[in-house]
């Protein structure tokens, strides 16, 4: 892995938005909804960071997410790393499509996988039916809404730090 700080810059640029999502979760708590955003914060760095750097960023985002929640150790981290791996391998399409949509989809997919991993041992399947799709929907909306601003911020900092947009590998 290159001793570069690109992942840290991307992480720093993501932190305020994670806090913002926490704030949103806090106000949605009375309705039993939690907002998941880390998946959306992968889309922009995937274009500018090398594979190793990108995975490091994804792992950090994942560990940070699960550290404060009763999610099985490593579940969120590995889900985000998997998503990042897919993203860096499809940089071409990622660059060409509307990034807000892509971020929304990525976030929803990650949220669903994390939900399933968390709920797996908890037995009561009746609560799953509505919850998983609903949380995925919320994650999609949050991701799509967040990407234009959060992505722009990450983009700005990374380009200022000298990380160019990479061609397709």
């Amino acid at each position: 892995m290159t001793p570069s700080l690109g992942w840290l810059i991307a992480l720093g640029a993501a932190a305020p938005w994670i806090l913002a999502a926490d704030l949103l979760s806090d106000s949605l708590a009375p309705w039993g909804l939690a907002v998941f955003v880390p998946g959306a914060l992968l889309a922009t760095p995937a274009l500018r960071l090398g594979t190793g750097q990108a995975l490091l960023l994804a792992a950090c985002l994942g560990f940070a997410h699960e550290a404060r929640r009763p999610i099985p150790d490593g579940a969120a981290a590995f889900v985000l790393m998997l998503a990042m791996l897919v993203a860096v391998n499809w940089r071409g399409p990622l660059r060409r499509r509307r990034r807000a949509w892509v971020a929304g989809w990525m976030n929803a997919a990650c949220a669903t996988l994390v939900s399933v991993a968390t709920g797996f041992g908890q037995g009561d399947w009746t609560a799953w039916g509505g919850s998983v799709p609903l949380h995925a929907l919320v994650a999609f909306a949050a991701g799509a809404a967040l990407q234009p601003v959060a992505g722009a911020m990450q983009d700005h900092f990374l380009s200022r730090a000298g990380f160019p947009v990479l061609r397709e590998p």
Partner: peptide
Amino acid sequence: AARESSTWWSRLV
């Protein structure tokens, strides 16, 4: 400091 409730957990910090 923070509250979070989803289907699988309900927690306060």
